[in-house]
Structure formats: C-alpha cells, structure tokens
Amino acid sequence: MRLVGRLAVGVFKESVRDRVLYGLVIFAAVLMAATYLLGQLTAGQDIKIIKDLGLASISTLGLFMAVFVGIGLVWREVERRSIYNLLSKPVTREQFILGKYAGLVLTLAVNVAAMTAAFYLVLAYMNWNADDIMRRSWPAPALDPALMIAIGLIGVELLVVTAVALFFSTFSSPFLSAVLTLALWVVGHFNDDLKHFDAVVDSRPAVWVARALYYLLPDLSAFDVKSQVVHGLPVPAAAVALAVGYGAVYIAFLLVAAMLIFQRKDLQ
C-alpha cells in the first residue's frame, strides 16, 4: 500500500502542475461567483438557484477533471514511454493501476473540497445578507448540512467516472476513452429507465437486453440527490448507504478489469 501511496502522490503532483487543471479550478471559482449573480435575478428563488447551480458546477467540473485527467493516466505513461522507468522498479502492474487511480482520486478530492468551500462561502454570504422573513421562505437553510450528502454522492459518482476513464485508458486512445466515458456518463444517468423497460416494450428479448445493460452499465442516477436536497426533502440514509455500496462494488469491478487488461498488455 505504501508504494500505491507514493505513486498516487506522484500523480497528484503531476496534476497540480498541470495548467489545464488550473484552468478548470479558475473556471470553477468564476462559476461559483456567477451563481450569486444569477441568484440575484430570480426574486425569492435566489437560494434555490444558487444551490442548484453550485451543485451542478461541482458535478460538471468534477466530471471534466475525472474524464480529462483519467483518460490520459495510463495512455500518457505508455505513449511517452515513462512507464518503462516505472515498471522496471519494484512496482507491480496492479500497484501501478491502483496508484494512478488513487492519485486522481486525491486530485479530485482536493478540487471538490476547494469548490465546496467556495460554494459554502457564497451560501454563507447569502445567509448573512438575508433577513428572517426571507430565511423562513427558503425550503431549506442556506448552510444546510444535507448539501454535504449531495456533494458526497457527487464525489462517489466522480470516483465511478474516474474508474471508467481509467478502465478505457488501459486499452484505448484518449479521444476514444473520452467519448466512451462521456457516453457512459450520459447513459448512466438514464440507466434506471432500462430497468423498467418492460413497462414500455412488450418484446421479451428487448427487455432482457435492457435488463442486462442495466446491470452492466453504471447507474449514476443513484448518486443524484441534488433535487431532493435543494428542495429540503429528506434523503434516506439507507438510499445513501446503498448508493455508496453500489459505487464501491462498481469501482472494484472496473479496477479489477483494468488490472487484468493491463497485466496482459505488451508495452512495445
């Protein structure tokens, strides 16, 4: 595990010095500030709009980071041949994959934490600026701790997307990996519909195929509780635990698959 940690720190350092990532972080900060301005345009709905936009920003920018850093993690090492130096050290290919994944998770965690802090700053300012009547009209408090549940689940979703990107990165080019990962992300948000395909289609084979795809593809809708949180609706602890468990199993499945593919790969 110590080796995995060292590899992860290496990935984190590389990400920290990557200008593209700085661009995304600056964009995130600007977006957070913009949520405040947008909130001002909507009388009475400002806090809801800010929460909606803030959570969407964290989710979308996290997605871009996960995809655009994740797709190059393995491919770039192979393409620039720096992997020869690494794998000639006492590092197994499994440790390499885990280290790369852990490094990107660390990078994402820091970035999501920074975006969350910026988000809470905007909300704190709104809270400080509002009077009691306005506060009572909000569906949930400005600094609602339930927001952390939504952000936590966004985090788990990003971990799944990172694992998907890393998985594709072990055998395809960055462009193809990006296309496939983003396609899976889109499909993943509508995956729940595949489960209930029998309600709209009579064909048994089509229902079986839809059901098989439902189990094979990630169900990212399980991680989306943004709407409930923004509207102040309760999020059952069991649903959160189930989503986290599902995410953990899906990530483990993807990482094992990535390791098996990478284990057999000839590094020509």
């Binding site: 060292r6 590389e14 010095r17 620039r80 041949r81 720096s82 020869y84 000639s88 050290k89 006492p90």
Partner: peptide, 24 residues
Amino acid sequence: YLPENPSFYDHLSAEELLIYFAGL
C-alpha cells in the same frame, strides 16, 4: 534499467525524479 530514448515527467526536476524513484 535504462530504456532506449528515455522519457520522464517533464514537470519534475532530475532531483525530484530520482527521489521519487528512490521512494519506490
């Protein structure tokens, strides 16, 4: 092992790179 036409992480200095590899 020295690979043919070696390539390293551009963002690191030689010292950082060797310390990183020593850590492995």
